[in-house]
């Protein structure tokens, strides 16, 4: 639901904000206390986000200043560059953090995360946007009243349930029908992920499409445009900022999703960007499955926190990007319109 709220505030951001109602007079003391409490709670939520980041970064940062911790996995460069490890014939990216020589190369995890996330987006965004167009533009009122809540209800399915579904049902089904070499792979995880993020993208897109002023469509129809012309050339462009925001928020959710990929992707840290049928290990799944075991303070622990910090930064940047894209698109499509 926060995604939805974000999009709504974004759409209103361009207008100058009027003074909040009910602030022009001296409120009774009970109201003022309540206001202070609520303001405090709001501050707490902002502060806690900042503190969470500080805490995670605090555990990761010593990695850059402790030579002995760096030595454990062969120096900072070993986190990002391939290396010919003892026992290997060629220079490779390897994530095997436990063993005689810990190998903590982050590239396989980034590749896995990117692969599953992009695949999940490829499945979910077109479907979600088409569903949003249908529900907002074509569906009868009765169909809409059933479809919209049903699709939004999908957003509340716990991801562990989706992961279980992907693991038990989807994996066998897809291996049998597509003849995949292994049961659990990036494709299965991406389909599971798509089910999780499609409702997010749908909800935001549908809101954007429904809030396009009816006058625009009415005017186009009056000028002789067909229904599909109205939808494709009037309503869709006008709602594009909202749809883009939905897609970016969906991406943020997908990159942070843990349970589905943990259960359905097979978690093999292979560096194979373009083969969807191979297994993949994501950053989130790695943190979830390894953090419980590591000794607090050692190099493996710090690298996992580094991964967490990177994930935090990426999702934060994506959220800002969503706001920025929406504003930029809005300026473009409303250029020349009277304010």
């Amino acid at each position: 639901m926060t995604e939805r709220a974000d999009a709504a505030t974004v759409e209103k951001a361009s207008r100058p904000a009027p003074r909040p109602l009910g602030t022009g007079y001296r409120a009774p003391w009970s109201d003022r206390i309540a206001e202070a409490v609520i303001r405090g709670l709001a501050l707490v939520s902002v502060l806690s986000i900042a503190l969470i980041f500080v805490f995670i970064a605090k555990e990761a940062i010593p990695l850059f200043f402790e030579p002995e911790a760096q030595q454990e996995f062969g120096g900072l460069a070993a986190l990002f560059s391939p290396r010919t490890w003892p026992g290997y014939d060629a220079s490779v990216f390897i994530w095997q953090p436990v063993g005689g020589t810990p190998k903590m190369n982050l590239v396989p995890l980034f590749v896995g995360t990117l692969k599953i996330t992009v695949l999940g987006m490829l499945f979910s965004v077109p479907l979600a946007v088409l569903a949003a167009i249908f529900v907002s533009q074509y569906a009868t009122r009765r169909a809409r009243e059933v479809l919209k809540p049903a699709l939004e209800l999908m957003a509340s399915i716990p991801s562990v349930v989706l992961g279980f579904f992907a693991l038990m049902v989807l994996a066998s089904l897809m291996q049998d029908t597509l003849g995949l070499p292994s049961r659990l792979n990036a494709l299965v995880a991406a389909v599971g992920l798509a089910i999780a993020i499609a409702p997010v993208v749908f909800t935001v897109s549908e809101d954007a499409l429904s809030s396009v002023p009816r006058e625009l469509a009415a005017a186009a129809l009056a000028l002789g445009a067909r229904k599909h012309q109205v939808v494709l050339r009037i309503v869709l462009p006008a709602a594009l900022p909202g749809i883009a925001a939905g897609a970016i928020l969906g991406f943020g959710r997908a990159i942070g999703e843990t349970m589905i990929v943990l259960m359905a992707s097979g978690n093999a840290a292979v560096v194979e960007l373009f083969d969807p049928t191979s297994s993949a290990r994501t950053v989130t799944a790695t943190i979830a499955s390894e953090l419980g075991e590591v000794t607090p303070g050692d190099a493996h622990w710090r690298v996992l926190f580094l991964l967490g910090s990177l994930l935090f930064v990426v999702t934060f940047v994506l959220n800002r990007l969503a706001v920025w894209v929406v504003e930029a698109l809005q300026r473009r499509w409303t250029a020349g319109a009277s304010r």
């Binding site: 026992g87 390897i94 994530w95 095997q96 063993g99 097979g266 978690n267 093999a268 292979v270 560096v271």
Partner: peptide, 9 residues
């Protein structure tokens, strides 16, 4: 090391 392609469950 295990092969990178080994799935970890």
């Amino acid at each position: 090391d295990f092969a990178a392609a080994a799935q970890t469950l």
